[in-house]
């Protein structure tokens, strides 16, 4: 397979979309999937459990320096930034929030883009701020593949619209198309 990893950023209105993707992706989808989602920082549990109920792939919050495995979904832990670091391991960070967000979608995308370069697929979903736009632009810059959720389908289109503004994206897809696309990767 040409690509080595998928990274998805989302905020308000993205939860149902993520659920649908995780519920309908091929059971043997071979790449790691990173989820950088805005979430309540004081709520440690519940979010992961809700996602794992529907997900056909195993999903977890990585510990710092955990090795990245294929066929696994990784959710950025609450109140930490999540980086894909050299050596194929996660690095977490408590650096100040960026765009009022920790995890910051931009920072996760930046690190993933620099690690996987043109072998990364970056996806921006519904959300109420512009976090992720610069990150997706960086994926494009490194030759990766960029997808934005169709703003007309997004519950809150601010984030997809901001990403479309700065990035010449490969695809603007509805949820169903995102799933079909991922499942068609060879």
């Amino acid at each position: 397979m040409k690509h080595k990893a998928v990274i998805i950023g989302g905020s308000a209105g993205s939860f149902q979309v993520i659920l649908e993707i995780l519920a309908n992706i091929n059971k043997d989808f071979p790449l790691p999937i990173f989820l950088s989602l805005h979430r309540l920082k004081h709520i440690r549990s519940g979010f992961l459990e809700a996602l794992s109920l529907k997900s056909v792939l195993p999903i977890k919050e990585p510990f710092d320096k955990e090795l990245i495995k294929s066929k696994t979904v990784y959710l950025a832990p609450a109140n930490y930034h999540m980086y894909i670091d050299s050596g194929g391991r996660f690095s977490l960070s408590t650096e100040p929030p960026v765009n009022h967000s920790r995890p910051s979608i931009d920072l996760s995308f930046f690190s993933a883009a620099s690690k996987y370069q043109n072998k990364l697929i970056g996806i921006i979903l519904s959300g109420a701020n512009k976090d992720g736009a610069e990150g997706l632009k960086q994926v494009e810059k490194f030759g990766g593949l960029t997808i934005v959720q169709d703003p007309s389908e997004s519950q809150i289109p601010t984030m997809p619209t901001a990403a479309l503004k700065v990035t010449n994206v490969d695809h603007t897809y509805r949820t169903k198309q995102i799933i079909d696309f991922l499942n068609s990767l060879r």
């Binding site: 980086y83 960070s93 650096e95």
Partner: peptide, 12 residues
């Protein structure tokens, strides 16, 4: 030091 966060720190 962890590569990405150190890069961030230099940036800072």
């Amino acid at each position: 030091y962890s590569a990405t966060s150190f890069k961030q720190s230099i940036d800072n």
